[in-house]
Amino acid sequence: MNTKKLLALLLALVMTLSLAACTSGSTEPAEEPAGEAEGSGEAAITVTDMTGREITLDEPATRVVALSAADCEFLYAVGAGDTLVGRGEYCDYPAEVLEVPSVQSGYDTNIEQIIALEPQVLLMSTMAQTEEQIAQLEEAGIKVVVSDAQDIEGVYTAVEMIGKLMGKEKEAEQVIVSMQAAFADLSNSTAGRGKTVYFEVSPLEYGLWTAGKGTFMNEIAEMLGMKNIFDDVEGWAEISEEQVIERNPDYIVTITMYFGEGPTPVEEIMSRTGWENVTAVKNGAILNLVDNELSRPTPRLKDGAILLNNFVVEHERELAPAA
């Protein structure tokens, strides 16, 4: 059926753009950016993007269009947010990015819109654009740079690459160092050791979708010593309610957005019949992450990880006397 197919595509689109991860695992081993500049031309910048293409710029880019939400965040993270002249329609963080003109992205990518903005560089992720579209852009003199972080290591690579492209190597270094420090800190945290966690991507009403193996959420859970109850499932997947009840998670993390009407996502989970005996529901151990902290490959993964860890620490402390 046409509607169904269209919407399946749209769903895939939402997944790609707002969650920016793919189920196929690591198809492309993230390559280290080629650090050395070419001998000739002092100011020339050469980077290898995450599909292995070499890109040379005479000087740091000053006009950039970024299509994926993660790319926008990278630019702001390295302090180059002011170079953004266009953004993909789903880019929403930080708040000031919304003031940048938006262009259609994903399956509706509008090449003319992008060319009209006259950027020097177009940042995008691998999945959405076709070879023909890239060729068209290159012909218009726009350098296409692909960032495609599949894991935390990939985030470092992307940050470093974009830092270099924008002439913000130092800032990029700082971002990476602070992420590494935060993660090192978190991996020493013992509060969540051995606890189980269930990541809920879409609520029961629409069919339960979760994040399994190969997602950032899973990686963060492992870092905190927690066990994702669906680590036997690849990527993003619809799973059965029965399995959640059976696997009985200690913690639930939901990324459902709240639009200000009806019960909040946490209240909704608490009120589900049949879930009364799930440990996380019994203990009220449900965390709602509303800003894609754990679902987007950005430096804010560390914020999400810290939020989750703090939540776990607090809960374990509350539970300790009772136990």
Partner: peptide, 19 residues
């Protein structure tokens, strides 16, 4: 587009969570 997420999942159609 603010309800995109809700709508997309709704149209996938699900009898999961029937009460």
């Amino acid at each position: 587009s603010d309800k995109l997420h809700n709508i997309t999942f709704w149209t996938m159609g699900s009898l999961a969570g029937s009460s």
